[in-house]
């Protein structure tokens, strides 16, 4: 077979539906034998947060940010029809009916398929997120880490 192709996705958004799209594409590309990287930056980092009570040492501002942002994949809001939390509940019911995988399962599937999950360290600093708050077995990097993968990517997406 020819040289392995690469798919690179920048997940900037912290919306449940957008993150779902990103992870569906990533898992599909992995099935195509692509080397896949999802680069999480800004609000996209929230998809990687653990839904646990952790108390890393933080400044006051960082604590505030931590409280205001959703904790983990299943707590992300929808980009449309949020309706104070009713929207996500409804869509998750519909998803169950249609056997669509919820986001947290899509993320586990991605890790199982050896997709690289990269967290942007600069925006982690801005938002006050610490490594211990994010999922295990992910990688950390900056713009150069993304460009290194992205410069010869067959597919490059910004979501």
């Amino acid at each position: 077979m020819s040289e392995q192709k690469k798919t690179n996705i920048i997940l900037f958004s912290g919306d449940y539906d957008r993150a779902m799209a990103a992870y569906i594409i990533a898992n599909g590309a992995a099935a195509y034998d692509h080397k896949v990287t999802i680069f999480h930056t800004f609000w996209g980092l929230n998809a990687l947060r653990k839904d646990e009570k952790l108390r890393p040492s933080k400044t006051f501002m960082e604590k505030m940010f931590g409280k205001m942002m959703p904790k983990g994949a299943e707590n992300l809001p929808l980009s449309k029809m949020q309706y104070a939390g009713m929207g996500p509940k409804m869509i998750k019911n519909v998803m169950k009916k249609h056997n669509a995988m919820p986001l947290d399962d899509l993320i586990s599937m991605a890790q199982e398929q050896e997709i690289t999950l990269l967290a942007c360290t600069m925006t982690m600093d801005l938002l006050g997120l610490k490594e211990e708050e994010l999922l295990d077995d992910i990688e950390y990097g900056g713009v150069a880490a993304y460009i290194a993968e992205g410069e010869d990517g067959a597919i490059n997406l910004f979501i």
Binding site: A31, N99, M109
Partner: peptide
């Protein structure tokens, strides 16, 4: 009964 992207992931 599986929805996108599972059929292709499982096939692979």
């Amino acid at each position: 009964g599986l929805a996108c992207p599972m059929p292709i992931v499982r096939t692979k």
